[in-house]
Write a protein that binds this DNA or RNA. Structure first.
Lengths: 156, 156
DNA sequence: GCTACATAGTGAAGTCACTTCACGATATGC
DNA sequence: GCATATCGTGAAGTGACTTCACTATGTAGC
């Protein structure tokens, strides 16, 4: 009676592919962290800027939901971003408990620079890849994402 | 004079691909963290076990080099792993300054379970993919890794 | 053999991302 | 008008890191 674990060397090619995937995740994470640090940010703080950039001003609670972290954590991240003049906390027009968080113009500039960096990286990585191959590759990534989310009940 | 940043929507498909790559990195990271937490570990501690599992007993300094962190940090990680009975610190046979770190049998069992989980995940993700497609996908990943490392002077 | 210098591990102190819990201020349903 | 849910934040704690200083030991060079 052979189970998965009895295989002499595991699932072979599939295992190598997964290892490559982990490797990409690691190197990409390191690269992003470095890019973001160059602009005086951390990945968590950059995530806040990114969310505000894409979805506009928001309540701290909404931001917490968007980022998948606790509201308390958002408070801390915003304290730092506000100290750097990248975001602004304003009174909510109708709910006096809430604060509306928005990017300052400086914050918008920084985030646009971040986006520029991402686009440059995309060009370096994929710019010369023939469309057919790139599409296939991206489809593969999407399949992986899908199955990963399906396999993980903690889904987000 | 058009530069990359003047493009109305950026590099298009390439940008989407990179976003998918980030998404994979994120979801995969979350999944690994969850899998490892199920066995009472953290990703950093699991990394230590993994290194010892693959390369055998090692000096703390060597471990630090392998993991790309400071020796001081390794001390802390090992303290936790030792408290859980997963690793063992023994005197180095020839250098009395150094300690030789090795997996205990419990540590080996846990690490083998981790490996089993990885193999199962690999099977779920790639088990049913036709070899040709899988090879192409993995080659794509390797190209990405290569270029990422080339683009990052901090290379590891 | 002894001095000079490099190296192995760790204490002390600090940063950053995160959490849970408690609490005051406000909104809201009935 | 009052009970109750919700918004943000103080307090306290964890885990992964870092740098710096220090002790104990190895290793050259003379």
């Amino acid at each position: 009676m052979k189970s998965l674990h009895d295989m002499p060397e595991g699932p072979g090619i599939a295992r190598v592919s997964l290892d490559r995937l982990f490797e990409v995740a690691e190197v990409l994470g390191a690269m992003m962290q470095r890019g973001v640090a160059e602009r005086g940010l951390t990945t968590a703080r950059a995530g806040v800027l990114w969310a505000l950039f894409h979805d506009g001003p928001m309540t701290q609670r909404a931001l917490a939901g968007q980022l998948g972290v606790t509201p308390r954590n958002v408070t801390g991240l915003l304290d730092a971003l506000q100290a750097d003049g990248l975001v602004d906390r304003a009174a909510h027009p109708t709910d006096r408990r809430a604060t509306l968080v928005a990017l300052t113009s400086k914050g918008r500039n920084v985030t646009e620079a971040l986006r520029g960096g991402r686009d440059e990286l995309a060009a370096v990585l994929f710019g010369d890849m023939p469309p057919g191959r790139l599409d296939a590759f991206t489809a593969g990534l999407e399949t992986v994402i899908e199955r990963l989310r399906a396999a993980d009940p903690s889904g987000r």
